[in-house]
Amino acid sequence: MERWKERMARFMIGRYGMDQLSKMVNYISFALLILTLFTHSMLLYILAVGGIVYSYYRAFSRNISKRYSENQAYLKVKYDVLKRFNQWKMRIKDSKTHRIFKCPSCSQKIRVPRGKGKILIKCPKCRIEFTRKS
């Protein structure tokens, strides 16, 4: 068993290995394979096998800089999606206690507490004052 591990370690020297993008492609591919069991769709099967082949191609690749830049692009998209989701989640959670208004001049979003009646709001960006009901 140790001999196999040593051979694999020697084989992987200078290769990229698994990263977050490869792992995500593997997870999606395995989910598609499981879905294929129920739907018997040849298209899903081909996509799943193609995804697995692509993720292992990335893992065994010697072009480390290219694979790194692909992974960074994936991480940027993932970060942007998670950021928007978390903002949406916080806005829903916060909507019970606060309201958000847009400044009529500069469109800056301003968060004010709910239930205070008519209030005078001063934009922190452009210093315009406007009245709204909270």
Rank of each mutant, 00 (worst) to 15 (best):
residue 14 G to M: 11
residue 75 L to D: 10
residue 1 M to E: 12
residue 35 L to W: 12
residue 126 C to K: 10
residue 10 R to P: 00
residue 96 K to E: 13
residue 121 I to Y: 04
residue 41 S to A: 00
residue 67 R to N: 07
residue 97 T to V: 12
residue 51 G to N: 02
residue 19 D to L: 03
residue 9 A to M: 09
residue 35 L to K: 01
residue 79 Y to G: 10
residue 94 D to R: 14
residue 79 Y to R: 15
residue 8 M to P: 01
residue 84 R to V: 04
residue 72 Q to W: 03
residue 59 A to V: 01
residue 71 N to P: 04
residue 94 D to H: 00
residue 21 L to W: 03
residue 55 S to N: 06
residue 41 S to H: 12
residue 110 I to Q: 00
residue 105 S to Y: 07
residue 76 K to C: 04
residue 116 K to L: 09
residue 30 F to I: 14
residue 22 S to W: 01
residue 48 A to M: 08
residue 56 Y to R: 02
residue 86 N to D: 11
residue 114 R to L: 05
residue 64 I to G: 06
residue 48 A to K: 09
residue 114 R to Y: 04
residue 40 H to V: 11
residue 34 I to F: 15
residue 12 M to T: 07
residue 17 G to V: 09
residue 15 R to M: 10
residue 109 K to N: 04
residue 91 R to F: 12
residue 114 R to P: 01
residue 121 I to R: 05
residue 1 M to C: 07
residue 73 A to M: 06
residue 79 Y to F: 15
residue 132 R to E: 15
residue 33 L to S: 01
residue 77 V to E: 09
residue 4 W to K: 14
residue 51 G to T: 00
residue 75 L to Q: 09
residue 114 R to S: 08
residue 85 F to K: 13
residue 55 S to F: 01
residue 66 K to R: 08
residue 23 K to C: 02
residue 106 C to F: 09
residue 127 R to K: 15
residue 97 T to A: 14
residue 25 V to A: 08
residue 13 I to M: 06
residue 18 M to S: 07
residue 123 C to R: 00
residue 97 T to C: 02
residue 120 L to H: 07
residue 79 Y to V: 02
residue 57 Y to F: 15
residue 30 F to Y: 15
residue 65 S to M: 07
residue 66 K to F: 09
residue 52 I to M: 13
residue 126 C to A: 07
residue 91 R to C: 02
residue 68 Y to I: 06
residue 85 F to Q: 06
residue 102 K to W: 01
residue 85 F to A: 14
residue 46 I to V: 15
residue 126 C to L: 00
residue 70 E to C: 03
residue 100 I to H: 06
residue 82 L to T: 05
residue 66 K to T: 05
residue 21 L to H: 04
residue 114 R to T: 10
residue 54 Y to Q: 02
residue 71 N to C: 07
residue 81 V to L: 15
residue 130 F to M: 04
residue 133 K to A: 07
residue 9 A to Q: 15
residue 98 H to G: 07
residue 82 L to S: 12
residue 64 I to N: 03
residue 103 C to S: 09
residue 20 Q to Y: 08
residue 9 A to E: 15
residue 80 D to S: 09
residue 114 R to G: 03
residue 38 F to A: 14
residue 42 M to K: 08
residue 126 C to Q: 08
residue 99 R to L: 02
residue 81 V to A: 11
residue 108 Q to F: 14
residue 132 R to W: 03
residue 119 I to C: 02
residue 132 R to Y: 05
residue 93 K to S: 12
residue 57 Y to L: 06
residue 99 R to C: 11
residue 39 T to I: 09
residue 25 V to G: 11
residue 16 Y to G: 06
residue 100 I to N: 05
residue 84 R to M: 12
residue 84 R to P: 00
residue 42 M to D: 13
residue 15 R to L: 10
residue 56 Y to C: 03
residue 86 N to Y: 08
residue 94 D to S: 10
residue 44 L to Y: 12
residue 74 Y to G: 01
residue 112 V to L: 06
residue 65 S to W: 06
residue 34 I to W: 01
residue 39 T to M: 03
residue 99 R to Q: 06
residue 113 P to C: 04
residue 77 V to L: 14
residue 39 T to H: 12
residue 13 I to G: 03
residue 61 S to C: 05
residue 85 F to I: 11
residue 89 K to V: 13
residue 91 R to K: 10
residue 31 A to I: 15
residue 28 I to Y: 04
residue 103 C to P: 14
residue 30 F to S: 02
residue 57 Y to A: 13
residue 84 R to G: 08
residue 96 K to P: 00
residue 94 D to L: 05
residue 94 D to Q: 14
residue 21 L to K: 00
residue 12 M to N: 12
residue 59 A to L: 12
residue 4 W to Y: 07
residue 74 Y to L: 03
residue 45 Y to R: 15
